[in-house]
Structure formats: C-alpha cells, structure tokens
C-alpha cells in the first residue's frame, strides 16, 4: 500500500527555540497581540510503500530515530494516511 507520510519534527519541551521567540516578538508589531508559545520545527512529507500501516509506522519511526530527528533536542510526530494500493 502507498502511504502519504507527514513527519512533524519539533523542539523538545524545555529546549530553547530562538526562532519561535523571534517570531513571537514580531507578531505584536503587526497587531497580533494574543500569540503565546511559538515553537518552530520542520515538516517532512513523503510517500512510502509498505505492506500495511503497522509496518509503515515502524519504518518511519526508525527513520526518525536514525536520521530525521535528533532525540537530544527534538521529538517527531508521525502522521500516516493510506492513499492507494501498491503499483
């Protein structure tokens, strides 16, 4: 099956996120005064061919562990959606 995968990589709780702070300080200048807790991470999207959702998830978890996220400073949330059968 083909899965559409989105991996959301974000800074761990308690890890400083200077990008987020900078954006948070800029928004009030545009009149957006109610914003709190901006955190900047990254989003990776790709397609994955796997036998089922269980295997797809395990494979993506391993990708996160070995490359996509650095566990010292980041966590990864995986979103999977089946989009079709194997070609």
């Amino acid at each position: 099956m083909i899965f559409s995968v989105a991996v959301e990589v974000r800074p761990l709780e308690g890890i400083a996120n200077p990008e987020g702070l900078t954006i948070e300080r800029a928004l009030p200048a545009l009149g957006f005064t109610g914003v709190r807790g901006v955190r900047v991470g990254k989003l990776l999207r790709f397609e994955l061919d796997a036998v089922d959702e269980h295997h797809a998830r395990r494979e993506v978890e391993q990708m996160c562990e070995h490359l996509l996220a650095n566990p010292v400073i980041e966590r990864a949330d995986i979103h999977l959606e089946a989009v079709g059968g194997t070609q």
Partner: peptide, 17 residues
C-alpha cells in the same frame, strides 16, 4: 561528532539568532 553520537549533547541555532 555530536550527531554521530561520539560526543554528548547537540548544537542548536545561536540564542541571539
């Protein structure tokens, strides 16, 4: 070396951006 796990910790974006 930190990414390779040969040294502890990680290096992030400078605090002052």
């Amino acid at each position: 070396l930190t990414e390779a796990g040969l040294l502890p910790g990680a290096l992030m974006r400078n605090a002052g951006m």
